[in-house]
Structures are given as structure tokens and as C-alpha cells.
């Protein structure tokens, strides 16, 4: 659940590094971020993820990645970052008026 790769994402001496966990619910679905956990290494992170996030058959596949390896967009810059798509309403099908009697459209 740490969407913040902050200093806790690195290795604090005496504390296992933080990992982000992604689970594929079933075949055909995306892996989805479900939370985070601490583990000494990648392999143990997978094992811990199984115990913490899939106790009830929640998934068929798990990804783990060190939180410190994630680069995230900055919330302060979200306006300039996403602005280019904001004014392009013509990308949506609802932008176009089609007479109601035209079938299958």
C-alpha cells in the first residue's frame, strides 16, 4: 500500500526492504496492486505475499517489486502531465452526433 517510494523503500539497516505486491486474480486479468510488505529478498517477498495477500485463492500469479524501484508521477505536476488529454474530447465516441435511426453504431 506504499504508493510512495520514500526512504522506507530503501534498506534501513535492521529493517527488511519494502516490496509492492501485485496479484493476478485469474487468467485474463491484469496484475493489480494489492499492498506492500517487508522481506529480506525477492524470493521471500513472493512467499510472504502468498501468506499475506492470497489466503483465500485471491490469485493465480504474484509480482513483487522493491518499492524503491518504482518511479511515480508527481501529484504536484498532475495538471501539466495530464493536460494534453484534457481538451481532446473528440477522442471519445460520444463526441459525434449520429442520428438515432442509423443502426449498429
Amino acid at each position: 500500500m506504499s504508493e510512495t517510494p520514500n526512504e522506507t523503500g530503501g534498506t534501513v539497516r535492521g529493517e527488511w526492504p519494502l516490496y509492492e505486491v501485485f496479484v493476478r486474480g485469474k487468467r485474463g486479468l491484469n496484475h493489480v496492486h494489492v499492498g506492500s510488505l517487508h522481506a529480506p529478498d525477492d524470493e521471500m517477498a513472493i512467499r510472504h505475499a502468498r501468506d499475506v495477500y492470497t489466503r483465500r485463492n485471491e490469485g493465480v500469479s504474484i509480482w513483487v517489486v522493491r518499492s524503491s524501484e518504482i518511479t511515480a508521477s508527481s501529484p504536484d505536476e498532475k495538471d501539466p502531465l495530464f493536460a494534453p488529454s484534457g481538451d481532446k474530447v473528440y477522442r471519445h465516441p460520444t463526441f459525434y452526433d449520429i442520428p438515432a435511426d442509423v443502426p449498429h453504431m
Binding site: E3, T8, E15, L18, G35, L37, R55
Partner: peptide, 17 residues
């Protein structure tokens, strides 16, 4: 497990486990 989910949530606020 519930304890761990919640500790994770506090870590997003800058606290450490």
C-alpha cells in the same frame, strides 16, 4: 494479516514498521 495490511497503510504516511 490484518495487522500487516494496516502497518503497510501507515508506512505510506512516512512511519516505519
Amino acid at each position: 494479516g490484518h495487522g500487516l495490511y494496516l502497518y503497510s497503510a501507515t508506512e505510506t504516511l512516512g512511519a516505519t514498521r
